[in-house]
Design a protein around this nucleic acid. Structure first.
Lengths: 147, 147
DNA sequence: AATAAAATGTAGCTAAGGCTACATAATGTA
DNA sequence: TACATTATGTAGCCTTAGCTACATTTTATT
């Protein structure tokens, strides 16, 4: 792939695909937090009846301060409903996102394990990988599982 | 990024593993940028003889300002050598990291393609996924390729 | 050599996502 | 009920990583 010299003006931007992929990845990073939070909230709500700030902090490995500020953002974005000193609830939109993430997470973990990767390693890698698995790739993973 | 001290709660639920995985992922995010930069610098140096700020900016899909500031950090961290208005060079450490990333990237892309994922989608997903592929998982990918 | 253009650098803004320290509300218990 | 503990909230700081606008240096062209 040729990139023009400093004197020549590129007619078509080279490295277009790389730049595009990287920008795509950066955009995904912005929604990773939301995904982690809604999934944790859904899990906690199911297992404990409600999701509290402390539980989320413990679950996500951050302080309650970080949880607090992030919840404010997620509320702004319409994923959760928060009231001072009360439990945290998912909106419809949040529940939908949580379900998608849960589904995808399960497939990614199962797929990695099907390759012989031990459960703990699969869990750790899946946590990082899952946010970057496109529908096409997810389908390929699922298909591989059902062979 | 330090683990918040929590009061000793009895039940150590799987939240421990999840928190661990998430912290791990956040740590990886910190090095993603470094990986993307050194790989781009290595590529540009090989293909053009030198890596310049503009080329990096185009390649990474950001402005030259962002490149500039990031290069300062990478120099601080010992991956690159930068002098005003001059080309950018990798240190030994930077070259080593670039080689690792290049190797890993190739395996991830090939692996995804081997699952039937079209090249472009494989490239895009790989860009996000590769930074989160542990040595164990990378080995599993490679093994799957050599069947 | 003078000028135009491109590349690089700098100042300062934004936002996310970490944190500590401290303040207040809610809850459990003596 | 009073008090201690836990949970939650707030203030303010840090770093990364984007950006625009503008300044300076280098390179190209006339």
């Amino acid at each position: 792939m040729k990139t023009p010299t400093r004197s020549a003006k590129p007619a078509v931007r080279p490295s277009a695909l790389q730049a595009e992929s990287l920008q795509h990845t950066r955009r995904e990073h912005a929604s990773e937090t939301a995904e982690d939070y809604v999934e944790a909230i859904a899990d906690l709500s199911a297992s404990q009846g409600e999701a509290r700030v402390v539980d989320l902090a413990r679950r996500l490995g951050v302080t309650h301060v970080t949880v607090n500020r992030t919840l404010a953002r997620l509320q702004r974005e319409g994923y959760v409903s928060v009231r001072p000193y009360r439990a945290i609830f998912l909106t419809d939109s949040g529940r939908k996102l949580a379900a998608e993430c849960h589904h995808r997470h399960g497939i990614v973990v199962a797929f990695l394990q099907s390759l012989g990767i031990p459960e703990k390693a699969a869990e750790i890698d899946a946590e990082g990988i899952e946010h970057h698995v496109s529908p096409v790739t997810l389908a390929a993973f699922a298909k591989h599982l059902n062979r």
